[in-house]
Design a protein around this nucleic acid. Structure first.
Lengths: 137, 137
DNA sequence: CTATTTTAAGATAAAAGACTCTCAAAAAGG
DNA sequence: CCTTTTTGAGAGTCTTTTATCTTAAAATAG
């Protein structure tokens, strides 16, 4: 519920890319087959990541997508922002009017710590780590 | 993003109820006016809370809704479960296949602590506390 | 230059969520 | 009883998300 389906697919696909060489392009078809999701849908997701300069893409024979940066320099947050937008984690749990503007909402004390922890984690965790954890399962 | 719009409305309305006497019924119209949301929509939300036995309702003149239990015995989690369903917090951040069943997903270490903290908070925080924080803002 | 491969982009469809409207049913008051 | 108030429940609309399908555009290989 925290992240959209598109976002989860994007994260999983990014992990697959992180497990590969950053130099060679991987076709979206190959990734969609491996993830068992719609090729066309994944294409749309990569278009968003492309717009955010997270990946490089190449058309034609032996084309595909690859990470634009080394996997240890792409964070979980980068991918979420590219797909779900940077505002997705902004608001407080209740999104009560006034919260975060002038004063805190009733949930603020209980929520702010958790939110901070979550944002910190998202900024710290990289695709390289996720790929590593995924490899030795 | 964490909670549905319905859920947030339900939480806010519950807070209003918590600020009142548990004995008297408050009309849904009054609550929807105060929250500036659609009366009919709030009615639907209260129907879910009613099905979960979180509130008592009464039809007719001077009817309305009221908390079925004292506000310090109704948790944040109770309301979320009634409206968004108890599964809404179950899955891991990525909802990766296999996570939580046999082995952990790549995010598990980073995510589990945050999730635990969130669930703990949701089970601990009561409507009474939220209402109190809301009153002295 | 042509055929093939592969991403890009747009149009469309299906599903879920958010919200509205209408009528039924219950309760109370006169 | 009859009228009014107020919740209950169903149908219907609008919007967003998810997913599919089709066509275009680019790149490569021959």
């Amino acid at each position: 519920m925290l992240f959209s389906a598109s976002c989860k697919y994007g994260l999983r696909a990014s992990m697959l890319l992180a497990m590969r060489d950053t130099k060679t392009y991987v076709s979206i078809r190959e990734l969609s087959d491996e993830l068992n999701i719609s090729f066309h849908f994944l294409t749309k997701i990569f278009q968003k990541m492309n717009a955010a300069n997270l990946i490089d893409s190449k058309k034609g024979v032996n084309g595909g997508v690859k990470l634009a940066k080394p996997s240890h320099r792409v964070t979980f947050m980068d991918v979420v922002n590219a797909i779900d937008g940077s505002c997705s984690m902004d608001s407080c749990a209740l999104a009560l009017p006034g919260c975060g503007v002038k004063r805190s909402c009733p949930m603020h004390d209980q929520w702010s710590g958790i939110k901070e922890g979550m944002l910190e984690m998202m900024e710290k965790v990289t695709l390289a780590e996720l790929a590593k954890n995924s490899a030795n399962e």
